[in-house]
Write a protein that binds this DNA or RNA. Structure first.
Lengths: 218, 218
DNA sequence: AAAAATAGTTAGATTAATCTAACACCTTTC
DNA sequence: GAAAGGTGTTAGATTAATCTAACTATTTTT
């Protein structure tokens, strides 16, 4: 139905819509690693397909249809990541790019089979919820770590960035899903946090790291 | 290195080279489902890449390099088929088309991991040998059933066609790898064979079926 | 060996996804 | 409130893979 490239634009549009601010041509072109004219012409194409609401010079908007498409791609991505980790013994920091390729396979039953094999998992290896077959996504009930204050104790429930680099950083610091983290101090200047968890008595986490950690208050 | 399309041409060239006769533009275009001019231009492209030896109006030839490339694609295809059957419980008649997509994933470690997980399998679910990592292919020591004569007893060791249709036909008739087949008669007119195997006392197999069954004399 | 049939090539067009160059529209700043 | 600077669009080119139409080479048939 959609080309691989269209699917990637839909995913990028969806992920930008989850971030703050308008979705602009400039932001999307940066995210996709293409020039702005490329984005303009793709938006016209996706508008023809009723996936995107496009008006010249206006912010980009996913339609309900486009949003559902995006969620179905994300479903496949997350199911595949879970499969790679659970069945093929990959580390959570190794699966993103591979899943990004496998998610575009044209064989719906393949993903249904993974779903069945894994017993209908609700989250992926990074703690993110897996949309259901009709594209419905459970709301994440967690807040980011950077909203916490000194003295708070939380448990890490998910990460919002599953790139190799970030996850390898967490691995190196022994931070896993489920870790119990205590906030010791917050540096007001740069928003970095001094925390303790597991055997680590005192680690500093940069603001950019804290905002990618979804936690549950304990 | 090669595009998906180029990979598919290489596979088709290899499989035609295993059949009888010259590889002609017409045969390749039919196999690929494209028109002849498309083949001509692709051959020029593959010739530039030293994968094919191309001379106007002459039969097409894979170079050593092209042959090795093709075998590496076939390796990935067969490893994936085995994985789908062994790990994901697919039937041998369901994996061909899916493997055809997965084989093009750009992640060499993925296929190495499948290889390791399956303990370095030597054959795929259809009995065909899996080329090694450097593109070496074990010779198949089996003959086709249609070379057998009345009175011969053989065991089915592989099939040379792994399309859904053919394998579903075999399933319906209860013919599996390893089946012990006795040739009762050969019809000289159309080359069909009257055989018995398992609980089937008398089945007729068309010539086109017999030539796709690789058997071992018992 | 000439004609007919088949096989193969060339030329030129098309679609998808991309680019650069040039121009147009907004928004912010002085 | 006009200019500057960034944002966005249009126009036109490029590459990959495909097509059709027209032409050429080879092979087969009579």
């Amino acid at each position: 139905m959609n080309t691989l490239t269209e699917e990637n634009y839909l995913k990028a549009l969806f992920s930008l819509s989850a971030e703050s601010g308008n979705i602009t041509v400039a932001r999307l072109s940066k995210r996709m690693g293409v020039k702005m004219p490329t984005v303009t012409s793709m938006m016209k194409k996706l508008a023809r397909k009723k996936m995107v609401q496009y008006t010249k010079y206006r912010p980009l908007l996913l339609t309900e249809k486009g949003r559902r498409e995006a969620l179905l791609i994300i479903r496949r991505h997350r199911l595949v990541e879970m499969f790679l980790v659970k069945t093929m013994n990959y580390g959570w920091d190794e699966v993103h790019d591979l899943a990004e390729q496998i998610e575009h396979i044209e064989a719906p039953e393949f993903f249904d089979r993974i779903d069945r094999l894994l017993n209908h998992p609700e989250i992926d290896p990074h703690g993110e919820p897996i949309p259901d077959r009709s594209g419905r996504l459970a709301a994440t009930p967690y807040a980011t770590l950077n909203g916490c204050r000194p003295g708070d104790t939380v448990r890490v429930r998910a990460v919002t960035d599953s790139s190799n680099g970030f996850l390898q950083y967490l691995n190196k610091r022994g931070l896993r899903l489920g870790a119990r983290v205590r906030v010791k101090a917050v540096e007001p200047f740069d928003g970095s946090m001094l925390v303790s968890y597991g055997t680590r008595r005192s680690e500093t986490l940069a603001h950019t790291v804290c905002e990618k950690l979804l936690v549950e208050r304990v």
